[in-house]
């Protein structure tokens, strides 16, 4: 299953609902393009909802890091929401879990922006 993304606005925050696989190739490129497009349009409060992401590889992890740092470098903030167990475990073993701002409640994620 390839990756699908859709965006919605909640109280000035862009929620990106992701589903499928974030892997080398199409999935990673789709995520990268979406985040860059949001930033170019001035949407700098971003939540990646990963509830429906069932697989991620090292390239996908790299894309999450890239999205995080790109957003931060442009004065924005990016949070991760609803990690599946697989993604949670991968972020733990790569020591990235504490680097990202990870939330399990959408309302709290939206309210958590500065």
């Amino acid at each position: 299953m390839s990756m699908k993304l859709s965006t919605r606005q909640v109280d000035g925050v862009t929620i990106v609902d992701c589903s499928g696989r974030i892997t080398l190739g199409e999935g990673s490129v789709t995520l990268r393009d979406t985040v860059r497009d949001l930033l170019s349009k001035g949407n700098k409060k971003i939540v990646l909802n990963l509830a429906e992401v069932n697989y991620i590889d090292s390239s996908g992890i790299g894309e999450l890091v890239s999205a995080f740092t790109t957003t931060k470098n442009q004065g924005g903030e990016l949070k991760l929401l609803h990690l599946t167990k697989k993604v949670h475990d991968l972020l733990q073993i790569t020591k990235l879990y504490t680097v990202f701002d990870v939330k399990d409640d959408e309302t709290a994620a939206v309210k958590g922006f500065k």
């Binding site: 390239s59 992890i61 790299g62 894309e63 995080f68 740092t69 790569t94 990235l96």
Partner: peptide, 21 residues
Amino acid sequence: NPLAPENLLKTSGRGIFLMRS
């Protein structure tokens, strides 16, 4: 080492680490 603090935010270099994990 992808777990070194200076490498944590690199966008690549985790493949062999994951294989070993």
